[in-house]
Amino acid sequence: MASAPRDRMRDQDENARRKAAMAALAAAPADDLLTLWQDAGFIVEARPLRGPETGLVTLRGRMGGGGAPFNFGEATVTRATVKLASGEIGHAYALGRDREKARISATIDALWQRAETRAAVEERIIAPLAARASQADAQSRAETAATRVDFFTMVRGED
């Protein structure tokens, strides 16, 4: 019983890391993901359990930005679920209609859950994707920052 809180913390930590990996996969441009996946060289048999299939997710915002939720439209989303021969079940969800990306992402999620392959998945696929994404964000932020208005006060005459 004493170890229960520690287990819960470990679960939470593991969930956060898996979520971060899934976020990197979902955000990845399909071409980047495909290249990294091929170069990573995993030899794996993944049986499709569901999909890949495309559907809709209704998008929600909040009144005034932080108030009560409301629906403001929909987005296409593609998902897939696969099972490895060793039993791990991998899921993938991403905006858009790319089925191949969903299938590969689900396989990667399953490999991430397997203790023997997690480190390799992180190193060969997740870390490079996350690095590219944060570099792209930094670039876009720098481009936006260059358009920041620097106000200066003009001193007017009249003594």
């Binding site: 809709l56 997710v57 209704t58 998008l59 909040r62 930005g65 939720p69 989303v77 998902r79 964000d137």
Partner: peptide
């Protein structure tokens, strides 16, 4: 087109304060 697709669910409300701002 959208009427031909199944619905997976409702998203969590977006957080515009955490936006990657472009303007």
């Amino acid at each position: 087109y959208r009427t031909t697709l199944p619905r997976f669910g409702y998203s969590r409300p977006v957080d515009t304060a955490a936006m990657q701002v472009e303007r």
